[in-house]
Simulated scan of single mutants.
Amino acid sequence: MGFCDEVKKRFIRLSRGQRKVAQFVIENPNVVATHIASEVGKIIGVSESTVIRFCYAMDLSGYSELQDRIRKDLLESKHVSAGEQLSIGKKHEYLFSEIMNRDVTSILNTIQCIDAESFEKATIYLHEAGIIYTLGYRQCAPSTCYLTSMLENFGKKVTQIKFNVEDIVNQINRMDTDSVLFVIALDSVLEDILTIVKLAKNKKVKIIAITNSSISPVRDYANISFVAGAQKQVALEANTAANSLVHALVEGMTLHNRNYYKKFLNLNAQLDDSLQFLEKRTLTMK
C-alpha cells in the first residue's frame, strides 16, 4: 500500500487542519518531497506545527520520514508509468473492449464504496424533497443533466443551477429546509462548488454529494456523500460510474411510492405518443 493510500484510510480521524495537510500531500507529492515543512505549511495556509502533527498522526517520526515515504512512492510510480502506454490516440482491434471494461471496473469500485444505510437515506431525501436543486459544472455537467432529466421524468420539481452569478444567487435565496441540493463534484476545481455548498448548508438544506475522492472538501458539508469511479480516474471517466449511481438512487426513490411515480411515467409515455401523432399529422398536411 502506498503512503497516500494510508493517508486516505486515516483521513476521517485527522483534525481539520491535518486534513488540509493530508489533501495537499495526496495532490502535490512533488512539492512535499522538495520543500521544507514551514514552506509547505505556508502554501497550505496552516502552521508548521500542524504539518508536523500530521506526520505524528500518520505514525511517522517527523517531516523527514514523510519526505522519505513520498519520494519512495514517486520513484515507484515512475517505474510503473514508464511501462504504460496511453490509450488516447491509440487504435487497436479491442479498443472498445478495453474502454468498456474500464467503465465496468469503475462501476464495480463504486458499488464497493456505497454504504447501504446512506443510500437508503438519500432515496428518502429525494422522495420527500419539496424541490431538488442539481449542481455540477464543467466535466460534471453531463451527469448533472442526466440526474435532472431522471428526476423530472418522475414528476419531481427540479432546478439545475446554471454557471452564472445571478442564477446562483437566485436559487440559493429560494432554498429552504424542504430543499435538497444534489451535487456532482468530480473536478479538481471546486472553489465555486464549495461556495454554493457552504451557503446551502447555512440555510439547513439537505445536501447529497457524489465525488470522485474520499477526501473531497465537498464531503465536509454534505449530509450524505458517495464516491464514484476508480482511484486516480479523471472526471470524464468517472461520469459513467456517477450516472450509474444516479440511476440507482432515482430508482430507489421511486420504491417509496411505486404507484405515484409510475403515474408520471405513464403520463410521459402518453405525451410522447401524442407528440408523435401530431408530428405525423403535420407532415401529412404538408
Rank of each mutant, 00 (worst) to 15 (best):
T240R: 00
Q233Y: 07
S214N: 14
Q276C: 09
G229N: 05
A241P: 08
N212G: 12
V189A: 12
F226L: 05
N243L: 08
I184V: 14
I168A: 15
I196M: 03
V165I: 12
N266S: 10
K204W: 04
V197A: 07
S244I: 11
F226G: 08
A235I: 03
L194V: 01
H256L: 06
T254D: 08
L181F: 00
I172D: 06
A230C: 07
A185Y: 04
A200E: 02
V183Q: 01
V180I: 07
N259T: 11
A269P: 00
D187C: 15
N259L: 14
L255T: 12
A209P: 11
K203P: 05
A248M: 07
V246C: 10
V218K: 01
F264H: 13
G252C: 04
L181I: 02
K206Q: 01
F264G: 01
L181A: 00
I193H: 04
V183M: 00
L278P: 00
L249A: 05
V227K: 10
A185W: 02
T254M: 14
S188L: 15
K201M: 02
Y260H: 13
K201E: 08
T211A: 05
V183H: 01
V234K: 09
K232F: 06
E166P: 04
V250R: 04
H256C: 06
S213W: 08
M253A: 04
E166C: 09
N202Q: 14
F182S: 06
K232I: 13
L267G: 03
T195C: 11
A235Y: 10
K232A: 14
K263G: 06
T211V: 05
A241W: 02
G252K: 09
N170Y: 14
L265R: 15
K232Y: 11
N164S: 07
D178P: 04
K206D: 00
R219H: 00
A242P: 03
P217R: 08
I172N: 08
E279I: 12
V189L: 10
K206A: 09
E237T: 14
T177H: 12
I215N: 06
E251I: 09
F182Q: 00
D192I: 05
Q276Y: 09
F277Y: 09
T240K: 04
N170W: 13
K232C: 06
F277C: 06
N202G: 12
I196F: 04
I210D: 02
A209F: 06
I210K: 05
L267V: 04
H247V: 01
K201W: 03
A235S: 15
E166A: 10
L275F: 11
I196P: 06
T240L: 12
I196H: 01
I210Y: 04
E166D: 13
N164Y: 15
